[in-house]
């Protein structure tokens, strides 16, 4: 298992290299000049040159890229062009906010999807099932950002239960967490339902009943643990989607998370910040996927990673 984790971590490196190269090339070759943005249009040749030199923008592509890699390897993500602060520091400020939204979203996903999916499967073709599945269809049809705006309008603007904008306090994260959690729960509940229906037909569920176990033990232990195996895989794959959703929601809710940071940086061509936040986002998605695989092996003893 340890060997497998190390292998997966090593395999992260080429992915991250490719990602940085793509972002780097886009910024290098795209029109628009960061230097004139900082210095303004009426700048003297001398000042322009010095700024260019300060950020190493006078060097050829390959040199710039290798320099960037070297400093990343040393744990230095560079300095923001716009704010003149270390990028790492800015990310450290913003990352917890985004992670909290994501985790809250996940918690809400599971808190809703598992009971709803299990209830729908156990009470298949009854009112409970139809209610859960209609709700889930609705959740799938509604885009996350739209749900976010709806929640914002109702609970922040009209009812004033939550702040409309703010500094990223936990109270401000509740609504975006729900927007992510609800839409994600919709698709997850369907998965839990169909997976449960499959598992409930299995011989070992009949065996569990033949032992005279409580029905809730049969359903929530014997069946659910098996039914969660494919759900874990799905969740691993949905992580990127969740982080993407969080980026959109941070903008709608004006929350200072890493998504906001990245979008602002893209708009102002603050290249080191874009590169740094992309690096962190990509790494967290890959790490979370590795975590999902580990969880998968813990739940299913038949899985052995070599």
């Amino acid at each position: 298992m340890l060997k497998y984790i190390v292998k997966r971590l090593i395999l992260m490196i080429p992915v991250l290299l490719l990602m940085t190269l793509v972002v780097f090339s886009i910024f290098y070759f795209a029109p628009g000049d960061p230097v004139s943005r900082i210095a303004g249009p009426n700048v003297t040749e001398e000042v322009y040159k010095s700024i260019q030199k300060k950020y190493g923008l006078d060097q050829p592509f390959v040199v710039q890229y290798l320099r960037f890699l070297k400093s990343v390897a040393e744990g230095d993500l560079g300095i923001s062009i716009l704010q003149d602060r270390p990028v790492l520091e800015m990310i450290k400020e913003r990352l917890p906010v985004t992670l909290q939204i994501g985790l809250l979203g996940f918690a809400i996903t599971f808190a809703i999807a598992i009971p709803a999916g299990v209830a729908a499967a156990v009470k298949k073709n009854t009112a409970v099932d139809y209610l859960c599945m209609t709700g889930s269809l609705l959740g799938i049809a509604v885009p996350t950002f739209w749900l976010g705006m709806l929640l914002l309008y109702v609970f922040a603007y009209k009812l004033r239960w939550f702040p409309i904008s703010g500094d990223g306090s936990f109270k401000q994260l509740v609504l975006p967490g729900f927007a992510i959690g609800l839409t994600n729960a919709a698709i997850t509940a369907r998965m839990v339902r169909s997976s449960m229906l499959e598992v409930l037909k299995q011989d070992y569920v009949r065996t569990a009943r033949s032992k005279g176990l409580l029905e809730k033990t049969v359903v929530y232990r014997h069946a659910l643990k098996n039914a969660l195996i494919p759900v874990i895989t799905l969740m691993g794959l949905r992580l990127g989607w969740i982080l993407g959703g969080s980026v959109a929601l941070e903008i709608i809710f004006s929350i200072p998370g890493i998504g906001r940071l990245m979008v602002d940086a893209i708009l102002s061509r603050d290249f080191p910040v874009v590169q740094g936040s992309m690096l962190v986002l990509t790494s967290s998605i890959i790490l979370a996927n590795i975590l999902a695989d580990i969880l998968y092996a813990i739940v299913d003893p038949r899985i052995r990673y070599g």
């Binding site: 299995q202 011989d203 070992y204 009949r206 065996t207 569990a208 009943r209 033949s210 032992k211 005279g212 176990l213 409580l214 029905e215 014997h222 643990k225 098996n226 195996i229 739940v299 299913d300 003893p301 038949r302």
Partner: peptide, 27 residues
């Protein structure tokens, strides 16, 4: 159902036809 549950496994037990699939794979 509850009365029957208390009899199953305690007073009347069953051994099934399919040993390969009758045990729960994750316990």
């Amino acid at each position: 159902d509850e009365e029957m549950r208390q009899i199953r496994g305690k007073n009347i037990a069953m051994i099934f036809q399919e040993p390969m699939t009758s045990l729960n794979p994750v316990f």
